[in-house]
Amino acid sequence: MIRDFALQCTEMLLVLLLSPLLTGFVRKVKARLLRRQGPPLLQPYRDLVRLMRKEVVLAESASWLFRVIPYIVFAGTWVAAALVPTFRTGLMFSWSADLIAIIALLGSARFFLALAGLDVGTAFGGIGSSREVMIASLAEPAMLMIVFTLALIAGSTQLSTMAAFMASSVVGLRVSLALGLLALIMVAIAENARIPVDNPATHLELTMVHEAMVLEYSGRHLALIDLASELKLLLYVSLIGCLFTPWGISGPVETPQALIIGVIAYGAKLAVGGFLLAVFETAIAKMRVFRVPEFLGAALMLGLLATLLMFVSRSL
């Protein structure tokens, strides 16, 4: 019990501490691919510390809600991230929220963030919010379709059980899994506001979605929102890792060796995931906002197709 609790706390702290590193790593790789030196790996931590120390400059028209939202968004994302298995499948509170609830928790965070975009009453905030909800309106059902597929394969919507099932060798190669993985990657790109859906580095206002929404934030509020989006990136990489590349994850029997292997494997998965993301982002151009629905519509259709296959035959 106490050991479980300690491991759970470790995981929560681990995701919190690792997430800026992952973002820093992606930035570094992207810069190197462009033959730039790039910021140091630890730059995201420094940014966070600097933002936390600065005072908040709050717009005059901002309401109390605007000040509360960063905490809600951060807390929601953190709890969701802590519920995703990282290096071991036996999470202590896994039963308190299944994968559908994790997706919905992220949905809550986005709901509030979109409200924050509207709170100050500027045009940019509105543009960000309205585009964000448009993207979410397609990404979320696509994600739920992927969840359906995986849940039907694993016979459970509990993420720990699903991860343990995927790690066992009975799954094999399936068409629906391939479709699900493709759809999940597309959704993950959209959800994390990466190229080609959105550009995390842009400051050209009319092309931004996420950045426009949080334009009015500063100081500690901005730090929390940045941290939340870094956590979200980590969450999606961990999710893909534990479901589709479950190798090395520590199973129900947790010997110290298994845990150590799990941690190393998790680190390797994050590195590979981050590297692939950086390569993909460097290789592709950002698409127009109104091409995004086609992109995500494809993800939704893939997810639906994968689910349909599962309904038609349990072995596909």
Binding site: E55, V57, T122, F124, S218, R220
Partner: peptide, 14 residues
Amino acid sequence: LASDKLRRGPAWDC
């Protein structure tokens, strides 16, 4: 641990 200072100003709006 960090800061709890807050200042009101006009909206930034780029």
